[in-house]
Computed example of a mutant assay.
Amino acid sequence: MDQLLQHIANALILGGTYALLGIGLTLILGIMKVVNFTHGELYSFGGFMAYFFVSALGWNFFLAMAVSIMLGILLGACIERVFLRRMRNADIDSTMIVMIGCWIALQNIALLIWGGVAKSVPTPFSTEPLIIGPISISWLRVFVLGAAMILILATYLLINKSPLGKAMRATFQDRETASLMGININAIYTVTFALGSGLAAAAGALLGPVFVVTTTMGNMAALKAFAIVILGGLGSIPGAAIGGFILAFAEELGSGYVSSGYRDAMGFILIILVLMFKPTGLFYVRGERIG
């Protein structure tokens, strides 16, 4: 029982960052209908920015986290403005090729700048863990879970309670009608891609100090983000959030009770099962608006 409780605690912490990845990708896929192959690289970008500001420049850890997320938002806006806006009316195959090219370019730029050696991000947290009964959790992981939950809640409120979110939901439902009603579709697309990119960068910045930062860390993160979207159902922010936690639980319990070597495989086995019995995702409702 003690071991099970520890696995549950670990899964909750990991699930928060997985949820950020999934929400960011489901926004981009749902509103823009773009398969964002750069999502994993934006995740690693957040991790490297956190490393650069904390280790190289000696910035305050929490300030570095905030600036890393903001730069992820800015990079996402640049990618949308420079590459995707030109492809607005192109077929999906051409858009996918452009995004694959961006993914390869970003990964190789990161390799050129940072090299192939893994980087560790120092933190101000005590090495003494928080002990709650049989559960032992580092204070860094507690911070990661808290920050992830705040970002998830903020995104949900933005989408569902703000005028910007209303415009994004209208664009998701019917782009042409939204445009006729005066919504600037180009601006909505830029904001959507920037927001999704910022959430991916946030996940990388938060998990970078927990593990290590590498130039290939985004590869598996991107696959997991797509898996979370499949689990939750396209266009559902609560579904993406819950899907992130489901995937984290599948991985944590699978590695704990089956084999750590099958950690990543357990999540994708779950995806296959979901696709077999509910291809639209666990929380998809036909005609449901994004939110």
Rank of each mutant, 00 (worst) to 15 (best):
M181R: 12
M181S: 15
N184V: 00
I185F: 05
I185A: 10
I185S: 10
N186F: 08
N186V: 05
A187I: 06
I188Q: 04
Y189C: 13
Y189D: 13
T190M: 13
T190D: 06
V191W: 07
T192E: 08
T192V: 15
T192P: 01
T192R: 11
F193E: 05
A194Y: 06
A194H: 07
L195T: 14
L195C: 07
L195R: 09
L195S: 13
G196Q: 09
G196D: 10
G196R: 08
G196V: 10
S197T: 02
S197C: 01
G198W: 02
L199K: 06
L199D: 02
A200E: 08
A200W: 03
A200R: 08
A201D: 07
A201M: 07
A201G: 07
A202K: 04
A202T: 03
A203V: 03
A203C: 02
A203T: 03
A203I: 02
G204D: 03
L206T: 12
L207I: 15
L207K: 08
G208A: 06
G208H: 01
P209L: 07
P209D: 04
P209F: 05
P209V: 10
V210L: 09
V210Y: 12
F211V: 11
V212G: 08
V212N: 13
V213K: 00
V213I: 02
T214M: 08
T215G: 06
T216C: 05
T216L: 13
G218L: 00
N219I: 08
N219H: 14
M220A: 06
M220I: 11
M220Q: 10
M220K: 11
M220C: 02
M220G: 03
A221W: 00
A221H: 01
A221Q: 05
A222R: 14
L223M: 11
L223V: 04
A225Q: 05
A225C: 00
A225T: 09
F226M: 03
A227I: 08
I228C: 03
V229P: 04
V229E: 12
V229T: 14
I230M: 12
I230T: 15
L231Y: 15
L231H: 11
G232D: 07
G232M: 03
G232C: 04
G235S: 04
G235Q: 06
